[in-house]
């Protein structure tokens, strides 16, 4: 019974091996400009030299944009079942109705968007 899991074991071995190979290769092949000890204390930024750690605050606007993004992004999910079922509704002869449904939905979203614009939510200052 356990033998059935051997392919998974092999997959794991591949994963570990490939990641090890990549690490070892990059260790030997990459050109290194710095070897000083203090470089290791710095944040790692994809091999680029960092601009240092920024103290100070995030503007809270970013939270706002993130939250708004989540809301509007997720609402778009409704487009998918609507689009999938459009064909069958068209066959039943309700294409106008089905189209109107989505227009109403998007209209409500648009009202939300207009509200945000009116509240200067996108005004980054």
């Amino acid at each position: 019974m356990l033998t059935a899991y051997v392919p998974i074991l092999i997959l794991f071995a591949f994963m570990v091996a490939i990641s090890l190979i990549i690490i070892v290769l990059s260790h030997y092949l990459s050109s290194r400009k710095y070897s000083s000890r203090e470089r290791f204390e710095e944040p790692y930024e994809c091999g680029l030299s960092t601009g240092g750690i920024k103290p100070g605050r995030y503007p809270v606007k970013f939270y706002l944009v993130a939250i708004l993004f989540v809301v509007f992004d997720v609402e778009a999910v409704f487009l998918w079942p609507w689009a999938i079922s459009f064909q069958s509704f068209r066959e039943m002869g309700y294409s106008v109705f089905w189209y109107a449904e989505m227009i109403v939905f998007l209209g409500i979203l648009l009202v939300g968007y207009v509200y945000l614009v009116g509240k200067n939510a996108f005004d980054w200052k």
Binding site: I67, V70, V71, V74, V77, F78, W80, P81
Partner: peptide, 13 residues
Amino acid sequence: TIFIIIIAAAEAA
């Protein structure tokens, strides 16, 4: 599931 996702997003926001 889509409804639950929407609710979760609204709640998170």
